[in-house]
Amino acid sequence: MIGENKGIIYKIANAYSRSAADQEDLVQEIILQLWSSFSKYNPDYKITTWIYRIALNVSISHYRKDTVRKKYTAPLNEDLVKFSDTGSDDKDEDIRLLRQFIQELDEMNRALMILYLDGNSHQEIANVLNISVSNVGTKINRIKERLRNKFKQIEND
């Protein structure tokens, strides 16, 4: 289950990390939380909804340095996650700009934007965040408008 959905975990951890080391810690924490919460998984929900919720909750708490979260996890002696440099290519600049923009959003809007960029429906986003579907639509349009203005500004500069 974790192997099949690792992309979700990586993207969320990447969006809420301040450094590569921080990102390694966060991926590890999310995986441990998923592992330890699996016994409570409710099959009425889609597995991705469950993964998004846990990954986002752990990441936001990690980002805000919440101490409550740590009751669930303890440090590991071995490395569950390892990072390596894969070099850069032409797509990197676009990715860098998009990532930068996402990291400039506050924690809740960042979560919403990640869910949108991952191609989730408005209903699915509403389920993960517990807000109304119309609220999801309004927020996405608002954020996209900000993004459009930001890119225009970069182009003009």
Partner: peptide
């Protein structure tokens, strides 16, 4: 652009799931 980001992240992160099996949750 976002899915390119995912592709790149997947290449740069190695996950050792074997370790998970050894953890005493």
């Amino acid at each position: 652009t976002w899915s390119n980001h995912e592709e790149k992240l997947e290449k740069s992160i190695q996950l050792n799931l074997e370790i998970l099996r050894k953890i005493n949750i």
